[in-house]
Design a protein around this nucleic acid. Structure first.
Lengths: 178, 178
DNA sequence: TATTGTTATACTCTATAACTATA
DNA sequence: TATAGTTATAGAGTATAACAATA
């Protein structure tokens, strides 16, 4: 347990630290934890993580077609339709016809959607603070750099979250350690 | 349950990190990525992540009841039964009656289950290497320490993975308070 | 009466495939 | 014929509630 500086290969093959204490497991565990906590927070805004993801995508890259967006979110077009319907009915997003190709809808954020996105950003900052509460500012920066490096090398899209594929997640709080 | 520190709230506002580039988002994104990759790997052993999780739990802590295990895995007892059935039919785990309380089944790993667990450990090491490929041994150790600190402070059980529970909708209140 | 394991049932989420309207 | 959006439907996954055996 007390071997952080020894060689990488040796540290792993020395039997004791089985997968469950490795970085990959911790990432999966903490990732699910953070995602669940975030889902609880934005439930106060009547949003699911996937909905929040779409709002962010539309802010960054407006006017894209439903099929493109569905593809990035990892859901089939048939599921995207009612998904977008609800946000449109709530006046958060807008479908605009493309005059040059009338098959396509260009999706945009409404003013109301932009306002909600601003609230979402605030919630996100509180969330970040809660997750990183045990780190000093320096360590927080270190973690950010390491995570970004991995995400970059693993080819992850900056906006897209593989977890959005599930529409209604919601892990419950973990229980205490005995 | 001791708080290690508090009051590091400035780090967020310093640079431009909108939610999608923060550590919490990266953790959720990378966690889903790593979990998916791991699921693909162990599919070669005909195992799902939750099944692998149960095998590990039984190795660490044998003889527990189904209800306890179901609780840790985050699934209702009704779902745990067919879940354990399959592993028992495959000869990986064993149900033993408790003579003092005949209602309870004590679950144990079989020899075959232990062998599979060893293969699983090998797969886990390859997985770890793939995820952390872009890090030096020193950085890998740094990351491990930071992640362990967060997981500890957030009260996560060393063995349990919140992602094992595939919970569902039911909008919950949950407002901000940090 | 309470608890463990189990079964039964109803409900939700999801993917696949058909349909329409444009091209 | 091919593509964007939409609708319909059937299947998988899930939770809830009821059940029998044991305490």
């Amino acid at each position: 347990m007390e071997r952080l500086s020894s060689g990488y290969d040796i540290a792993m093959t020395a039997s004791a630290p089985t997968p469950r204490t490795g970085a990959a497991f911790l990432l999966a565990q903490l990732g699910a934890h953070a995602a669940g906590l975030f889902a609880e927070r934005i439930a106060g805004l009547d949003l699911t993580p996937a909905q929040a993801g779409l709002l962010r995508m539309l802010a960054t890259n407006p006017g894209r077609s439903q099929r493109e967006l569905a593809g990035d979110l990892g859901m089939p077009p048939s599921r995207f339709v009612p998904f977008a319907d609800e946000l449109e009915e709530r006046g958060l997003i807008e479908r605009r016809r493309n005059p040059s190709d009338r098959r396509i809808y260009a999706l945009h954020l409404t003013g109301k959607g932009e306002k909600l996105l601003a609230e979402l950003a605030q919630v996100g900052m509180n969330h970040e603070q809660q997750i990183c509460e045990s780190l000093s500012p320096e360590e927080h920066g270190q973690l950010l750099e390491l995570l970004r490096r991995i995400a970059d090398q693993q080819g992850l899209h900056p906006d897209v979250h593989p977890g959005y594929r599930r529409l209604h997640p919601k892990p419950k709080p973990a229980h205490d350690t005995p």
